[in-house]
């Protein structure tokens, strides 16, 4: 594999988090923002803990689904962006596997978590390990019974959609949702790392 994770993270983490004269940050073909992670964690936790127990799974699904859809479109924006072409594209030898590895390096550079592919069965399944992911900050002491990395789960599934789900479809009607992800371990639950298992839907 020719992907140099360290170099990608070094290069792409240098993006200046500053809006232009309109207060918007244009990069990777999208509008970016760099907000306190606290906002997203508070929202996930308050939403999932504010509903009755029998609706908790539904609330969690809404968060994973939003991240899945985001990851599909954002992921495509990333791998077709000028930033990707300049830094990551020259390293790619094996398609789409190197693209997947590169995408997780960008994921890390954005501050979502130090996520690496632990196992990959091309076209079939993937296991992702994540360290220091911001969603684990929901537990600051002790161990929670609940796994909380909804964004990581959704985005991991989306990256497999992009790699093996067929051509990108901006409407999401095809290609999107061909994979699903289940979080099986979490720092927030006392594990050493988060683990995310992606399989065909």
């Amino acid at each position: 594999m020719a992907i140099d994770r360290k170099r990608i993270i070094d290069e792409l983490s240098k993006i200046e988090p500053i809006g232009d004269e309109t207060g918007l940050i244009h990069a990777y073909g999208v509008f970016l923002q760099q907000l306190p992670a606290m906002i997203w964690n508070l929202f996930s936790e308050r939403l999932t803990t504010s509903v009755p127990d029998d609706l908790k799974e539904a609330a969690e699904w809404l968060l994973i689904d939003a991240a899945h859809e985001c990851g599909y479109h954002t992921g495509y924006g990333i791998i077709t962006s000028e930033e990707w072409m300049a830094v990551v594209a020259p390293m790619i030898e094996n398609v789409p596997e190197d693209i997947l590895h590169g995408a997780f390096a960008v994921f890390s550079a954005w501050g979502w978590g130090k996520a690496i592919i632990d196992e990959l069965v091309p076209g079939e399944s993937m296991v992702v390990r994540a360290y220091d992911y911001y969603e684990s900050d929901v537990t600051e002491y002790g161990k929670s019974d609940k796994l909380s990395a909804y964004t990581l789960a959704g985005v991991s599934a989306a990256f497999m959609d992009l790699a093996y789900g067929g051509d990108y479809d901006p409407t999401g009607a095809t290609g999107f949702g061909t994979f699903t992800c289940r979080q099986t371990m979490g720092i927030e639950r006392g594990d050493d790392y988060g683990e995310f298992v992606v399989t065909r839907s």
Binding site: I9, K14, F31, Q33, P36, A37, H73, G111, T151
Partner: peptide, 26 residues
């Protein structure tokens, strides 16, 4: 940006890059 943890901080608080897809979907 802490290269070891891959964490961004602004003003001492963990910050994260997200795009308009995420903000609008949420």
């Amino acid at each position: 940006f802490d290269r070891k943890s891959c964490r961004h901080e602004i003003g001492g608080l963990t910050a994260v890059l997200h795009c308009h897809h995420f903000a609008t979907l949420i």
